[in-house]
């Protein structure tokens, strides 16, 4: 019996098929639950795959080796972000000045508010590199964390949690501080909570959604420059 399980686990396609199946199942559950942010398919399928690995005693390293093509596709996806970026060029040119000012302030606040507590209590460099890129979109954040000596898998989980926190807390918080402009609401959601926040913004209105994707893309780009700079300052 164990032989058969090992045979299955050793197959090169095991990792990919498990991941895709878990994601498909989680998406079905998510749709049933009316796309409740707490049951985001990434979170649920991560739990499924993690539980399966623990239950069958499969080391994470061998799973990741099999599922690596999916991870590599992330790189291709970042390159393809050129498509939405180019599509929003018109809106960007129109209000370049207010958008860039809001972007710089927002990204710096995102980075510092995430790190403030950890720096204050003197966390080590590895943890800071793990937390720092969390408000950037996952593909960028994971690669930044990897590059700067963080723990990429933990960064991935932090990014997803950030997206969920933003989608759940964002709209009531924005109401509380009387931010009613749909463009400003969208921009804040996309900048702070990347794709999950952007999805939430599209539920509010098309305008909010477009500004959310602008916020997400620009924040990801700025983080590529900001995170290494801030880490350099903290490390020095």
């Amino acid at each position: 019996m164990m032989d058969v399980i090992w045979q299955i686990q050793d197959h090169h396609l095991f990792g990919i098929s498990v991941t895709l199946a878990a994601y498909a199942l989680s998406s079905a559950i998510w749709n049933r639950l009316d796309k409740n942010a707490f049951f985001h398919p990434v979170l649920v399928s991560t739990l499924f795959v993690g539980a399966l690995l623990i239950a069958t005693d499969m080391p994470y390293e061998s799973y990741f080796l099999q599922a690596e093509p999916l991870n590599l596709a992330l790189g291709a996806i970042i390159v393809l972000l050129a498509v939405p970026f180019y599509r929003q060029m018109g809106v960007l040119r129109e209000s370049a000045k207010p958008i860039s000012c809001a972007l710089v302030v927002g990204s710096v606040v995102a980075l510092l508010s995430a790190l403030a507590y950890s720096i204050a209590i003197g966390a080590d460099q590895e943890l800071i590199a793990t937390i720092a890129p969390k408000s950037a979109t996952t593909a960028v954040a994971v690669q930044l964390s990897e590059r700067l000596g963080g723990i990429p898998s933990l960064t991935a989980v932090l990014v997803i949690s950030t997206g969920i926190a933003g989608a759940v807390l964002g709209p009531p918080l924005l109401d509380a501080v009387a931010v009613t402009n749909p463009r400003a609401r969208g921009f804040a959601l996309g900048l702070a909570a990347h794709a999950i926040g952007t999805a939430r913004a599209f539920q509010m209105s098309e305008t909010a959604g477009v500004f959310a994707s602008i916020g997400m893309i620009l924040n990801a780009l700025l983080m590529i420059l900001l995170v290494p700079a801030v880490l350099g300052l903290v490390g020095a």
Partner: peptide, 12 residues
Amino acid sequence: PMFFVPAAVGVI
């Protein structure tokens, strides 16, 4: 989002 499940599972 699906493409970062393999990385996220590493949290175990």
